[in-house]
Nucleic acid binder design. Sequence first.
DNA 1: CAATTAGTTTACCATACAGACAACTATACA
DNA 2: TGTATAGTTGTCTGTATGGTAAACTAATTG
Lengths: 213, 213
Amino acid sequence: MGRTSDAKERLMDSVLELIWTGSYGTTTIDQICEKAGVKKGSFYYFFESKSHLAAAAFDESWKVNRVKLDGIFSATLPPLDRLRRYCDYAYQFQSEIRQRYGKVLGCPQVSLGCEVCTQEDVLQQKIKQILEQKRKYIESAVRDAHAAGDIDAPDAEAKSKMIMAYYEGVLTQARIQNDVEVLRDAYLGVFAILGVRVCSIATAPAAKVQQLA
Amino acid sequence: MGRTSDAKERLMDSVLELIWTGSYGTTTIDQICEKAGVKKGSFYYFFESKSHLAAAAFDESWKVNRVKLDGIFSATLPPLDRLRRYCDYAYQFQSEIRQRYGKVLGCPQVSLGCEVCTQEDVLQQKIKQILEQKRKYIESAVRDAHAAGDIDAPDAEAKSKMIMAYYEGVLTQARIQNDVEVLRDAYLGVFAILGVRVCSIATAPAAKVQQLA
DNA sequence: CAATTAGTTTACCATACAGACAACTATACA
DNA sequence: TGTATAGTTGTCTGTATGGTAAACTAATTG
């Protein structure tokens, strides 16, 4: 073997940040290289194009993200708590992002997917696949909640699609409005979709929820 | 006065279509001009930049769209019917778009807003303003529904924000998935958020709805 | 320590792009 | 019918961009 390098990782980190804080279309290969501290020749040594880099970067990033979601959606937790935690996570995470970048950036997959869906097919397929996997967490929480008698949701898939649309929708609104506060009560929308009545007093993260009569 | 021209309108039409079918970042002034059948010199005669053109185009387009929404949200209709019509409209409209362009394109304002929010401030303000006006339709329908006793929603603004996030979220999913079918039952999510129980049999556009006990 | 593999660097090319400008032309209307 | 006004056209410039290729360097291993 020859020498080793982390240039590939640096390129992936850079493209993720540039796309997220800006957009796919306006981030150039030169910018990516400069941010990563990598010469363009090396870029083309590792990746054949911007879209290939982006696809690889989102793939890699998803592997990390998945671990976090595995924790949030742990099967040891009551199913509705999992969804509640997922909403709280969005608020906390976007607040940190706001601190770091001065802007609320929302969901990288949706932003990119929405931007490139008519143009970059390989990348788009990758995004769709990641989003579908994300939805599965919601689906199984809904199914478990139904099985536990917490909610009445015989069609977990349909419900999970509604929740997904809402959840990602709120994140998108947060990005567009550049405001984290729209995320604070995101769980209310999720629980409304599920027909769960929330105790109006308990708004702390571990809010108690009651089954709808 | 000298001679008149519709080049300005053609430029606005072109930029709208190019952004919607593609993205803001990848549409160039040359492309816009070519599509509009206008030379670049004329472009700069009418607009000082791409972002100024886009802002003007979205502004103009909103004026047309508003008339349509005024009809859908007519105060003469029962408030929940208005929301139902709004959902049906999304499905019908996106189906037509699908026919014409071969792709589901979703909501132009959200797609653009999501893409440029960290980069183009003037344009972003315009988008935020249009989206806020769109939300007002939902808010007043919710308020009327509450007043009529159809639903229990004392905070119409909060509910309208939830519905907005969900509605635009579904449109975004439709764009990303390139699938109109996710829009077919969009009204179910809206009504779930409002705590309305929908007759499971009546799924036709004029579905009857009942107040939640 | 040679040979091989892995990664880096620099220079380069063609094209696409934003933006400017001066010369030109059509139209309204006084 | 002349002239101010409105709109058009072609050309030009500098730079940013994607993409290539060849020379170079560092680690690894037999």
